[in-house]
């Protein structure tokens, strides 16, 4: 079982990450990846960029712990989590989660679990930049509610 965690300012290549998850991996029949992008509309205004900051050290520990929790619940042989920080323009990639498993259900659920926990616990803060102003993003209750399906 392997876990790869990376917090970086640089962009990532989804194809490369996908290949890494698949290469020399004969036991897994499923790969699920998620990529989050900077989108245009938030609270009505046109977002032109996002600025992301994090708590170095604590963020990586939290992501590692989320990945380990996912591996306890599902048989996920490989997990890759990449999160970008810094100034990200509209359309740029923010986050990547990729997991491999023997079968698709564990891979789908594992990837979703990781994203739901990342949204609620990983120490990142997002600021939206508009044409003439900027605004810190507020925590969404819907993200908290998303955790409900994993509590049992």
């Amino acid at each position: 079982m392997s876990i790869h965690i990376q917090v970086q300012t640089d962009d990532f290549n989804v194809g490369d990450e996908h290949n890494t998850l698949c290469s020399n991996n004969k036991s897994d029949g499923a790969v699920v990846t998620f990529t989050g992008l900077v989108r245009e509309f938030s609270s009505g205004d046109n977002v032109i960029a996002l600025e992301l900051e994090h708590y170095p050290g604590m963020t990586e520990q939290l992501l590692q712990s989320i990945a380990e929790q996912a591996q306890k619940r599902w048989q996920l042989a490989r997990i890759c989590i990449i999160h970008r920080v810094g100034y990200l323009a509209l359309g740029e990639q923010i986050v990547f989660v990729g997991v491999t498993s023997r079968h698709r259900q564990a891979a789908f659920e594992g990837a979703q679990f990781i994203m739901d926990y990342l949204k609620n616990h990983a120490t990142f803060w997002k600021k939206e930049h508009f044409k003439n102003s900027s605004n810190w993003v507020e925590f969404k209750q819907s993200d908290k509610q998303a955790l409900g399906k994993w509590e049992s």
């Binding site: 994090h54 949204k119 990983a122 120490t123 990142f124 803060w125 997002k126 507020e138 969404k140």
Partner: peptide, 10 residues
């Protein structure tokens, strides 16, 4: 000791 608002990553 760190203080911060609720997180908003992803």
């Amino acid at each position: 000791l760190a203080f911060f608002p609720p997180v908003t990553g992803g």
